[in-house]
Design a protein around this nucleic acid. Structure first.
Length: 849
RNA sequence: GCCGAUGUGGCGAAAUGGUAGACGCAACGGACUUAAAAUCCGUUGGGCCGUAAAAGGCCCGUGCCGGUUCGAGUCCGGCCAUCGGCACCA
């Protein structure tokens, strides 16, 4: 009758059953300190996934990879006696919902609600043990009220360079507090994307095109909100040391922050009462400085340029301004530049050197000016050759290679003060000399730029800021949240003016004051969501103090014990969140200087064709289809069985079938089908003692699964459970005492089938009490693992020649004698001299002839 | 260009410096079945020798070239390829 293939076990019934039970009993709800059911005797474990953007397409199999890993650890930790905080939420502000609104006129609130519902039901089908009572959504006014509140704290503070901390702006003694706030307004050249009608952050521009939509991006100055993340560069760098993150990710952040040590040197301008300050990492090459180059936008240019050079300079500056970031950064193009007509004095040589402008010098890094040392810098060399500027060798390479163009460390030459010194020593000495004579000082520079924090978009957090008489002013806490107005038309204005400017009534805050119409970038909400999860319903504070201290507690700098997500957030999200955490920490609102103690990145899952999954390739795998066919447990186990979590790996439907077969074997180990086609507990299960061999495989499995969960080697944990099940297939008596631990070990991976089988065992046997989720994790007994006899490998010159069974107690001498007397070995060594015999107890004997 | 990761059967992979390929997929053979599916059992890195068939034996093999070591997939040096990040940062 039914053409549908019979299920190998009734996962389609038992999976919804257990999900309903978990939900009804709220088994995975973690009470806060002071709440009903909270057990202060247990240690805490905060395990967090990077929350998703709920897109209209729904979940794909890449999302649940990390989520499955964390779910296994969360379930394991609960059975290990931890209070586990394992929440989920939605990062729902962002461009796709807004673009959909532009097209359809439907308010983003509506699409967001639909998408969240879809994502949530998909996640629930997989059986994740989230505490859904803690669900949060960044677009919920009860959430973004506090995002705005945190912005106010940032706005109302400054970075005190003496204490190296953020402090309330009231402690600032200078005349212009607006110039030091951690949130400030600046006219900055921004990445303007006409198609999207908005400004983009540097990070959102890839190869001169928008990351979203791949539209062209040009530079254009605009009034923008900036966050002074650069003030924290040093701490963001130093504090990485104490975090348990992959070294590669730390390196990525270090490179992004880009600390470099060197000196700032002042070059006096000839016939003019001013000087040009340059930054260099090679002060030891100062004698080779034969010209200066300023960024075209450098402020001094206006003052120093000579009459006859004005037209050329003006023309060059205009040309540069028209260039997009892409054109300007194009390395293949020739160097360009214009002479200003002015000269500076090299403080070391007292010689006159020309001052140029060129677009290879960037205004935003260092001082926006460089000393050109063509002999020892590739770019300067190219520039000097093009414009025929003098090249002077001042560093002699230690090996035999040409000195011109040598950028490594060598020995200083043609440099009277430092001649003969190694580059390292020369740097120290010349820097000291510069300081002594007031020409410069030691300096540290960072590549990190301040964070462009405003967007010309509708679907984001409005700023709690109003403008009056051309000045910005913060709203009071009581006025939060600032809710965006409803609009009929969400289209960008196209002028750079944000869509909120269309809400004529909304922007009129008072007779005199207008609201800020920019909104915050999508990163804002995800900068602090891990804090909100600790206390998601608090309407008095962004997070309650006690809850924050408890869940973010521990003796390490980071509060979240384990954070799992993709490498695509290795720099930006993780850096921004660390920055906010540090500001909140400085201001005394949180107890930890770092948000995430341990970080694990899951690898990308490719399609069956080994290509990145994408709609256009048609190789997207939808978890719902997999679950329909094989069940959620098989889906979870396959995601983990594919290979190491961190690795990129292709999906395989055949692979899913293999894992599904394994679960069916577990099922049939304990269940048999009766005449009526109903599943019932197998009569082979007896409260009998397991055999020695069974005992051994059981304890080996407990040991391996436990160790593998701790080390995130979920694939090999599953392999071991397969070995266990294979060992019990076709035995006549199935010892109950071996099946109980198996189900516990399996339960974090395949919680539904484990729960069901556990419950079925309970209907006949009374050796255990309570549900699967209430069981403690099993311990293994090392003694039961010990072999009495082991196979010893006999090698000759490292090559395998024979094997023998020996007692584990055999001494080295016994092993040696036994190996040498083996007939096969005898055959091979007669007539040869045995030079050495290496004996590795319990492993091998290697005979060297 | 710089930085990082990866490279092992037909495929996904496993191996504290000590038996390379556990476990799974695919393939092939067998049992069960009228038949198929499902299930269960077995074989499966390559080459060669051996045998009626087996048993058995030998050589090669972890991207390439070298080194350290009694012994290297694993450690060291040099290359190559793929993927990812950064990219005129002075």
């Amino acid at each position: 009758m039914s053409s549908e293939r019979r299920k190998s076990y009734p996962f389609d019934q038992l999976e919804p059953k257990w999900q309903a039970i978990w939900e009804e009993r709220q088994l995975f709800h973690a009470p806060n300190p002071g709440e009903k059911g909270f057990d202060p005797a247990k240690p805490k474990f905060y395990i967090l996934d990077m929350f998703p953007y709920p897109s209209g397409a729904g979940l794909h199999v890449g999302h649940p990879e990390g989520y499955t890993a964390t779910d296994i650890v969360a379930r394991y930790k609960r059975m290990r006696g931890f209070n586990v905080l394992h929440p989920m939420g939605w990062d729902a502000f962002g461009l796709p919902a807004e673009q959909y609104a532009v097209k359809s006129g439907q308010h983003p609130v509506v699409t967001t609600r639909q998408n969240v519902a879809k994502f949530k039901s998909q996640l629930k089908r997989i059986g994740f043990s989230y505490d859904w009572q803690r669900e949060i959504n960044t677009t919920d006014p009860r959430y973004y009220k506090w995002t705005q509140w945190i912005f106010l704290q940032i706005y109302n503070s400054w970075f005190n360079p003496d204490t190296k901390r953020a402090e309330p702006i009231s402690t600032y003694r200078g005349s212009d507090p607006d110039s030091v706030r951690l949130a400030y307004v600046a006219d900055v050249p921004v990445n303007w994307c006409a198609e999207l009608g908005t400004v983009l952050a540097n990070e959102e521009v890839v190869d001169g095109k928008s990351e979203v939509g791949k539209f062209p991006v040009v530079r254009r100055p605009m009034r923008q909100w900036m966050l002074r993340i650069t003030a924290y560069a040093e701490r963001l760098l130093d504090d990485l040391d104490e975090l348990d993150w992959p070294e590669g990710i730390k390196l990525l952040q270090r490179n992004w922050i880009g600390r470099s040590e060197g000196a700032e040197i002042d070059f006096k301008i000839e016939n003019y009462d001013a000087h040009v300050r340059v930054f260099t990492t090679r002060p030891d090459t100062l004698y080779g400085g034969t010209f200066l180059v300023l960024a075209p936008e450098h402020l001094l240019v206006d003052q120093i340029v000579t009459e006859e050079q004005w037209p050329a300079v003006r023309e060059y500056r205009e040309r540069t301004a028209r260039k997009s970031e892409l054109e300007r950064a194009d390395l293949s193009k020739e160097k360009t530049g214009v002479f200003t007509g002015a000269y500076a004095i090299n403080p070391a040589t007292s010689k006159k050197i020309p001052i140029w402008i060129a677009d290879y010098v960037l205004l935003g890094y260092g001082t926006g000016a460089i000393g050109g040392v063509p002999a020892h810098d590739e770019r300067d060399l190219e520039f000097a050759k093009k414009f025929d500027l003098p090249i002077i060798v001042v560093v002699q390479p230690t090996r035999d290679e040409p000195a011109i163009g040598f950028t490594g460390e060598g020995v200083a030459v043609n440099s009277p003060i430092i001649n003969g010194l190694t580059s390292a020593d020369a740097k120290k000495k010349i820097t000291a000399w510069l300081e002594q004579h007031g020409f410069g000082k030691r300096a540290i520079n960072y590549k990190l730029r301040d964070w462009l924090f405003s967007r010309q978009r509708y679907w984001g957090e409005p700023f709690p800021i109003v403008w009056e008489n051309g000045k910005h002013r913060a709203l009071g806490e009581k006025e939060l949240p600032v809710v965006p107005p409803p609009l009929d038309d969400y289209k960008p204005t196209g002028t750079g003016e944000p869509p909120l400017a269309k809400a004529k009534e909304w922007i009129r805050y008072s007779d005199k004051a207008l609201r800020e119409t920019n909104t915050m970038p999508q990163w804002a909400g995800s900068c602090w969501y891990y804090l909100r999860f600790c206390d998601p319903h608090n309407d008095k504070r962004f997070v309650g103090e006690e809850a924050e201290r408890y869940w973010m507690g521990g003796d390490k700098p980071g509060g979240v014990d384990l954070y799992v997500g993709g490498t695509e957030h290795a720099v930006l999200h993780l850096l921004y969140a660390r920055f906010w955490q540090k500001v909140l920490f400085d201001l005394g609102y949180v107890s930890k200087p770092e948000p995430f103690q341990r970080l694990v990145n899951q690898g990308i899952i490719l399609g069956e064709d080994n290509q990145k999954m994408s709609k256009s390739r048609g190789n997207i795998v939808n978890p719902d289809d997999v679950i329909d066919q094989h069940g959620a447990d098989a889906f979870r186990c396959y995601e983990m069985f594919m290979g190491p979590l961190e690795q990129i790996k292709p999906w395989s439907m055949r692979g899913v079938e293999g894992v599904a077969r394994f679960l069916a074997r577990v099922w049939r180990l304990l269940m048999t089908e009766n005449q009526a086609g109903e599943w019932e507990l197998s009569s082979k299960i007896k409260p009998a003692d397991p055999s020695k061999a069974q005992q051994k495989v059981l304890h080996a499995t407990i040991k391996k699964v436990t160790k593998d969960i701790e080390s995130f080697s979920f694939n090999t944990a599953i392999s071991q459970m397969m070995i266990f099940v294979n060992a019990f297939t076709n035995v006549q008596i199935i010892p109950l005492s071996a099946m109980r631990p198996l189900l516990i070990l399996l339960s974090p991976f395949a919680p539904h089938i484990a729960s069901e089988l556990w419950e079925r065992l309970n209907t006949r046997f009374s050796d255990a009490h309570g549900d699967m989720t209430e069981q403690p994790w099993p311990e293994y007994n090392e003694r039961l693992l010990a072999e009495e006899e082991v196979e010893i490998v006999i090698q000759i010159n490292g090559k395998l020649r024979d094997r023998m069974k020996m007692s584990v107690l055999a001494t080295e001498e016994e092993l040696r004698t036994a190996a040498l007397s083996s007939p096969k070995i005898q055959d091979r060594i007669t007539g040869k001299t045995v030079r050495n015999v290496i004996v590795v107890p319990k492993k091998l004997v290697n005979i060297v002839v």
